[in-house]
């Protein structure tokens, strides 16, 4: 089962490598990983998209929590939450027909064309993992995809619930 783990940790050198090291050392999966500083510069927030059964997920959250740099861990997928990913897709746009079709599909998905070249369009799209995967799949039916860059999932709990130090 796919899960999204949110981690609040010290913004220290080496802290990220401890998280990544833990996942490989204990043979846990990482589907995607996002990390950046929070509003409080001494803290980082990591979002990891992973999968495993309940027993594995229990171990993942416990093991991450045990790391000295980690302040809080939450499984976002346990509760109502919002998840988003951003993708940049560079496609071949050689003729009018393809260009129109790419624009049409992007419009439907509420994407934006953010760069135009002689023969290429670059589209930016935000959404959850499903939306982004189906967008890429549909685009690939219309034209040749040159490059896909996905940010990985970030997420936040709905309502009052917050992960703070």
């Amino acid at each position: 089962m796919r899960r999204i783990i949110s981690i609040l940790l010290e913004n220290e050198p080496g802290a990220l490598s401890r998280i990544v090291g833990l996942f490989s050392q204990r043979a846990f999966n990482i589907e995607s990983l996002c990390v950046a500083e929070t509003d409080e510069p001494s803290l980082s927030r990591i979002t990891i998209s992973t999968f495993g059964d309940d027993k594995i997920l229990e171990q993942i959250t416990k093991q991450v929590n045990k790391l000295v740099d980690v302040i809080k861990v939450a499984d976002l997928t346990e509760r109502p939450h919002i998840e988003r990913e951003i993708v940049l897709v560079k496609v071949l746009a050689m003729n009018n027909k393809t260009r129109t079709e790419v624009m049409r599909i992007s419009d439907i998905f509420r994407g934006d064309i953010v760069d135009v070249g002689k023969q290429i369009y670059t589209v930016q799209l935000t959404g959850d993992e499903d939306k982004i995967s189906s967008f890429i799949s549909i685009l690939s039916n219309e034209t040749e995809i040159i490059e896909v860059v996905r940010s990985g999932t970030v997420g936040i709990a709905r309502g009052e619930k917050a992960l703070r130090a």
Binding site: P13, G14, S17, R18, G21, L22, Q25, V68, D69
Partner: peptide, 9 residues
């Protein structure tokens, strides 16, 4: 890293 409780640089 995998065999320490923690480490400091």
């Amino acid at each position: 890293r995998p065999i320490v409780k923690h480490s400091f640089n």
